Every structure is written in structure tokens, then in C-alpha cells.
Amino acid sequence: MQNLQKPSVKPYLITRTLNPENQETPIHFIHKDFVSDKLFYRRNHFSYPNFSFYWLIVDGLVNFSRTFSLQEIQSLPSKTVKTVLECAGNKRGFFKPKVFGEQWQKGALSQGIWKGVLLRTLLGFTGVMETAREVVFEGYDFGERTDSNQVTHFRRSLPIEKALHPDTIIAYEYNGKPIPFKHGFPLRLIVPEWYGMASVKWVKRITVVGHEFKGPFQAVDYVYYPKKESDEGKLPVTTMKINSTIQQPLDRKILNTGDHIISGISWTGNGLVTKVEVSVDGGTNWSPVDFERSPERYVWVRWSYKWEVLEKGEYTIMSRAADSKGQVQPPEAKWNRKGYGFNAIDVIRVKVE
């Protein structure tokens, strides 16, 4: 009789839209620090770009405009950065009342190792004028926005200080291989600590300017609007908030009595994650978790908690994290009409039989 091998079982991306492609990482089944490019979340505003040659232009308020070839950039001294990238809309689907936009759950989040050249190294070849205020990055991706009939490229800016930060890079590798096309090949800006919209893909042009950039992906989108019908109190979306996600058990899972491991990840854009606590009684009591390793800047910390449950019933499990800057996950996220920065205490419910 022929021996039959058991089929392999593996996770897949979770589709939100196909055109443009927006897919979530199956975050509950990621148990490594490095997410493969095939499981890295995909966030696009337009269809994928199409280009047959590549040059990177650096211009604006510089002493000498310069056009770099990919080969030139790869020949320069390199920097490696391990970092979380989180979409600003991660967990948008949990806001109450609901908001419009991609209804991301918990998987618009990934992590890996990027290699490239410091942005300030490139700007060192061109020089930066004293009047410089921001640096604008234009991607090859373009299309029509729903609020305009005009065709526009994806453009974002960074303050000059953030652009010159020693960990802001123009990357050409991800996890030791060329960046896959769907994640920005051949060059992608990587901005640790900031939400993923800042890490512009398919970088086409870098322009130094002396004013506040007000493109639609800077002044319309990626802005916190705390009021439903007014722009009063609006603030730009920048640094990632303290956050955590329970990976296992899954929400609404049915369990046996006995010992179970509650596990998850926590991350922040401010300093280091310093503490994570778990509650198994809906927030009445909290217990510290065990970290898999010492927290590092820019990356998530993996944690676990051993839970012994002897009584049948329904249980509400919660996780909350704190960082070295004094931020603590709040019971409720700050509502905003575009649904950015959801970071409320994570909550799941399980039933023990």
C-alpha cells in the first residue's frame, strides 16, 4: 500500500481588496521575528506601477542636483535596520462607531530586516541648503483619488531632522534578498518608529523643500480628525503608538480545562516596551508576562503567560503594554474619523468546556 504524506498546512495572507491590492499578515500564526515577504502585509492606494528603467533623482534645496543609479546606491556604505512596519489603519475595524476605509483587523503589521544606504549619505552628495525644512519622497505608483479627478503620485514628506536620522534609510534588501516588487523594489524608504505610510515604496524622486508639504497623502489622508464633521483639532499621523496583540488563543476559541499558554507581541514607536500584563478576568486583575528576550528598539517583543484554568465558563482575556516613554495602552482608542492609530487594550473571549 502506498504511503501517503500528510499535506503541509501553512498560513496565507488575508485579503481586504484586490485592486488595489490590500492584504493582511496572518499575524496570529507568525511565530518568528522575521515575516517572510510572502506573508508581509500589502498596503496600496493605487495599482502597482510599471517602469522598465530606474534612476533616483535628488533635487530641490540642494547644492547640486543628482541622479543616482541603483548600482551606485548599492556600492555605498550600507546600514541594516530591523523594524516593525505597521499600517496606520491597523485594527481600524475595531473602532466604535465604525469608520470608512479598509477594515483592517490585527494583521496590517509585519517585521523584518531592511538593508540600504542612509538617506543622509545620499543627501551628503548633494548638500542641503540651510533653508531646508522637509524632504519629499515621490513613489512611482500613481492614480486617481476618490476625492479628485486628478492623477496623483503617492508623495509623503519627512521633517529634515527625521530625514537625517541615522536609522532612516533608502533600502534595497529585505531579509537578505532584493526587496520584492510588491514591497517597493528596487528602493523603498524605511522610517523606523513611524507608521508605514512614511516608508514610501518604489521611490522615484527625493526633493528637499523649504516649506510644509501639503500633498493629499500628507494633508488630507494620514491625519487624525477627532471630530466627525469638523477638522478642528486635527493632528498629523506620525509615530506608532504603544500596542499589543494576543496571538494565541484565538478569539472565540473553545478550550479544555487545564494549562494554556497565552502568547502575543507588543511594540511601540517610542523607546522600548517595558511591561506587558495579561488579565483573564476581564480587567479586574492583571499579571505580568514573560518576555521571550530583552526588548529592543524598533522591534516587537514576544511574550507569553501560563494560564491554569480549572472551571468551565466564558473568559475575557486582555493584554496591555507600556513603554519607556510612559505610554500605556488605554481601555479605549481615541476615535478619529479616518480610523488611524487604534491601540486600545487587546481583548479576546474564549470558552472553557
Rank of each mutant, 00 (worst) to 15 (best):
V128M: 11
M129C: 12
M129E: 13
M129I: 04
E130K: 09
E130T: 09
E130G: 08
T131A: 10
A132I: 04
A132M: 01
R133V: 08
R133W: 04
R133I: 05
E134I: 05
E134H: 09
E134M: 10
E134V: 03
V135M: 02
V135Y: 00
V135D: 00
F137W: 03
E138M: 12
E138K: 14
G139W: 00
Y140T: 03
Y140A: 13
Y140G: 03
D141L: 06
D141P: 04
D141F: 02
F142S: 13
G143V: 11
G143A: 11
E144Y: 04
R145D: 05
R145E: 04
T146A: 04
T146Q: 02
T146V: 04
D147I: 13
S148H: 03
S148V: 00
S148M: 02
N149Y: 00
Q150C: 02
V151R: 15
V151G: 10
V151Q: 12
V151E: 13
V151F: 13
T152N: 10
H153Q: 09
H153E: 07
H153Y: 13
F154G: 03
F154M: 05
R156W: 08
R156F: 10
R156E: 08
S157P: 11
S157D: 07
L158Y: 07
L158F: 11
L158H: 11
P159T: 11
I160T: 08
I160W: 03
I160L: 15
E161Y: 10
E161M: 06
E161A: 12
